[in-house]
Design a protein around this nucleic acid. Structure first.
Lengths: 255, 255
DNA sequence: ATCCATACGTTCGATAATCGAACAAACTCG
DNA sequence: CGAGTTTGTTCGATTATCGAACGTATGGAT
């Protein structure tokens, strides 16, 4: 049986272990001791210590007594992803202007698997405003930004990803049937935008459009989010969609 | 001689190689082939391929034919640093309000070695506006945000870092003597703010204040940057300093 | 469409990197 | 201050990783 699941000798276990340790840090664990890191990463204590020592030498982690924390050099890794995609800077600036104009928060994201990952965000000045940091992940199937990007997948790939998610009913409004999600995504793709209404969180309504490169390939998506007490679906379509489309076109024109 | 520089067996070479490959991606190299990555990272082609394969399996890198590029999962690594520091979200929101009010761009950063690393940035709506992404690094000794943070170091440590930089004359205004930099940093620390005037880039003037935690320990710094044609040093001190100090105090009060 | 040069994927034995148990040292908490 | 817990370090053993070499694939020029 061991031979049946022979390990991939091209896969570097040590690198994987190290990256795994980095991902144990976060909001839940701003600092970690060696033993905590070992437990969370599923490593022996000696191995966890070697990982932390190496990361510290390289500047990705800082040590204060027994406590380790991620250092700002960890931002380098993510920054390089952002720096490699020129459309994101452009999007951030244009979304800033759009948010000022419509007085709502706006975002940009990219699709990865069954998640969207925020790559830009502008909060509005309202007290109740969507506020997500760059790097945040949300389920693609239940977000407007996710649905407009999923619509670019081939039918087989879309079904493959649909089947791989464990669909949860986040609110009473969440679409939970796979067929329902599939149909909605196809319909949104046909109309060129998506509105998601309180499926992820009660009170939250978002409208999104895709962003493409000059060659027509998908880059990501952008959206505006509002409190459902402030704007109806109809209002969003009538008042927010044209602004989003204009921003999307300006981004496409500049890359 | 080989024995004299015996390798640190607690340092994981494979992890270091992997992270090094990640850092070869960026604005200059949004995509890389196996051979390019090997050359830039100083590895054999087979090793570079194994690193890229492992990163791809883990989701940090994506492959399109022969071209590899960083995937959005790379943002996770940097996001975890930001997520672990609650003051940064708070700073971003308050800086957004401040930028709107004063109609200039604002930023927050943390000190790492002889660099500052941007952790938040708000561009103003002006055509000529400072625009730096989160993750960007700038030399601490020649920036207002850097100087206010360097002022928190002990004298010995400050001198150690001073001696380790290769001081460059970015503009005719750049302070290039170590003694001059040292004095300026001490003076700025004493007055509680720093103004840097066209030392890094002609036409760019910035004012910064430190941000501390409740315990008085340094968290980072915040700044406002303007075009030198729009504001004198005196104007910055008279009109911008109080707003920055207020934001700094509100951040400190909330963490 | 073909050919040639370049780049890539894969494999294997050798080697070096990595492992983790064990023990001493350090730290924390009561 | 003492006890319990955690960490740092070391060593021999084991496994992960390496890179040269060769076959395959790709891309560019003609």
């Amino acid at each position: 049986m061991d031979q049946a699941v022979e390990r991939d000798k091209e896969y570097l276990e040590t690198l994987a272990k190290g990256l795994n340790v980095i991902t144990t840090f976060g909001e839940d664990h701003p600092t970690l001791t060696v033993s905590e890191a070992a437990t969370l990463a599923g490593l022996s204590r000696a191995t966890a210590r070697r990982v932390l020592h190496t990361l510290q030498v390289l500047g990705y982690v800082e040590q204060d007594g027994r406590a380790y924390s991620l250092g700002p050099k960890a931002l380098d890794l993510g920054y390089r992803f952002l720096a490699a995609q020129s459309w994101i800077d452009r999007a951030a600036n244009l979304l800033r202007e759009l948010s000022d104009e419509v007085e709502e928060s706006s975002s940009a994201s990219v699709l990865q698997g069954t998640d969207i990952v925020y790559v830009a965000h502008v909060s509005s000045r309202r007290l109740m405003s969507v506020d997500e940091s760059v790097g945040t992940r949300l389920p693609a199937f239940h977000t407007a930004m996710g649905r407009v990007q999923l619509g670019f997948l081939g039918q087989a790939e879309l079904w493959r990803r649909l089947k791989s998610v464990r669909v949860m009913a986040y609110t009473a409004s969440t679409i939970t049937s796979l067929a329902g999600l599939y149909s909605r995504i196809q319909a949104d793709h046909a109309q060129g935008f998506s509105i998601v209404d309180e499926e992820l969180e009660k009170g939250l309504r978002s409208i999104a459009v895709p962003v493409c490169g000059r060659d027509g390939g998908l880059l990501g998506s952008i959206s505006i989010s509002v409190s459902s007490t402030r704007s109806t679906r109809e209002n969003m379509r009538n008042q927010l969609l044209s602004g989003l489309r204009e921003v999307s076109e300006r981004i496409s024109a500049s890359v």
